[in-house]
C-alpha cells in the first residue's frame, strides 16, 4: 500500500469562469460608451473651481435673511408633504408587502404584487406627480400622494424582504398550536418584524424629505418650489438662504430620525435580561 502514499494528489479541475470574464468586458464597454455618449467637454471642467467660488460668493457672502420666515414656512410644507407621504406609503406598502412575501401569500398573489412594485420602482416620483396632478392639481397633497405611491415600489420590497429574512420560530409555534394564517402573521411574524418595519418607515420619511425638495421643481409647493423660482430669477442672495435652510433641516431630521431608528433596533435586542425567578 506504499504506492498510494506517493501518488500525486488529484485536484479537482480548475473552474473556467467564462461568464465572469464576459461580464467584466461588458461592464467595461458600457462605462466607455457612457463617456462617449455624454459629449463631455473636458476643458470646461477647468472652469469649475472658479465658477464655484463665483456663485458661492453670490449666494453666501450676503444672504438675504429677510426671506428666512418664508423659507421656513415652505420647508414646513415640504416636511408635512414628506411626512404624509411616508405615512400613506408605509401603510400601503405594509398591507401589500406582507402578502408578497414567500411563505405568506400564494404564488398567484405574490407574482402580480411584485410586478406592481417593480413597475412603480421604474417610474420616478416626479413622473407619478405629473400623472396625479391631472386629478388633484398643483398642491402639496399631490406631492404627498406621489411620494406615497412612489414609495410603495421600494418600501413594499423592503417589507417582503424583511418578512422573508425574519427568524421563523414564533411562526412555527403559532402554526403548531393550530393558528390560522392571520393569527400566524399577527402573533408569529408581526412582533418579530415590527421594529425593523418601524425603522424602515422612519428611513422612508428621511428619503421623502429629500425627494419633496425635488418635487418642488414641478410646482407642487414647498421649499423646492421656492428654490426653483428664485434660481430662475437669479436672486442668488435668496437662493443662498434657501440652500442653508434645506441643508440644516435635512441634516437635523436625518440625525433625529437616525437616533430614533438606532433606539428602535437596539430595543429589539434583548436588554436588561432578568435572570431572577
Amino acid at each position: 500500500m506504499t504506492a498510494l502514499a506517493v501518488r500525486a494528489p488529484i485536484a479537482p479541475p480548475k473552474p473556467r469562469r467564462l461568464a465572469v470574464r464576459i461580464a467584466s468586458w461588458a461592464v467595461a464597454a458600457v462605462v466607455l460608451a457612457a463617456f462617449v455618449g455624454l459629449d463631455i467637454e473636458w476643458d470646461k471642467l477647468a472652469d469649475l473651481p472658479g465658477d464655484l467660488v463665483h456663485y458661492g460668493t453670490l449666494m453666501f457672502s450676503d444672504p438675504d435673511w429677510s426671506m428666512l420666515p418664508e423659507a421656513l414656512r415652505q420647508t414646513w410644507r415640504s416636511v408635512s408633504m414628506a411626512w404624509l407621504g411616508a405615512l400613506l406609503g408605509v401603510v400601503l406598502s405594509t398591507m401589500l408587502g406582507i402578502p408578497a412575501a414567500e411563505g405568506v401569500g400564494p404564488l398567484w398573489l405574490r407574482l402580480p404584487l411584485r410586478g406592481l412594485f417593480a413597475v412603480i420602482r421604474a417610474v420616478p416620483e416626479v413622473v407619478i406627480a405629473i400623472i396625479i396632478l391631472t386629478v388633484t392639481g398643483l398642491t402639496p397633497f399631490t406631492g404627498a400622494l406621489a411620494l406615497a405611491i412612489g414609495g410603495i415600489g421600494t418600501h413594499a420590497k423592503w417589507t417582503y424582504e424583511t418578512v422573508e429574512s425574519a427568524p421563523g420560530g414564533a411562526v412555527e409555534a403559532v402554526r403548531a398550536s393550530g393558528g390560522g394564517l392571520l393569527a400566524t402573521v399577527r402573533w408569529g411574524l408581526w412582533p418579530v418584524i415590527s421594529p425593523e418595519l418601524a425603522s424602515l418607515a422612519l428611513y422612508r420619511f428621511e428619503i421623502n424629505v429629500r425627494t419633496s425638495a425635488i418635487l418642488g421643481l414641478i410646482g407642487v409647493g414647498g421649499i423646492g418650489d421656492m428654490l426653483t423660482t428664485y434660481t430662475q430669477h437669479r436672486q442668488w442672495d435668496t437662493v443662498g438662504v434657501l440652500i442653508i435652510v434645506v441643508v440644516v433641516v435635512t441634516m437635523t431630521i436625518d440625525a433625529v430620525s437616525g437616533a430614533i431608528r438606532r433606539r428602535i433596533m437596539e430595543g429589539a435586542k434583548v436588554r436588561g435580561v432578568d435572570r431572577s425567578s
Binding site: G169, E172, V174, S177, W187, G188, V192
Partner: peptide, 26 residues
Amino acid sequence: NLADRASVFHNALVGRFAHMPTWRTM
C-alpha cells in the same frame, strides 16, 4: 420559539388560538 417582543401573556395565549374567533386573535 416565543415572540420576544410580545408579553408572556400573549405568548401563552397563542395556545388558545385554535379555539378563539379571528377578531379576538387579531
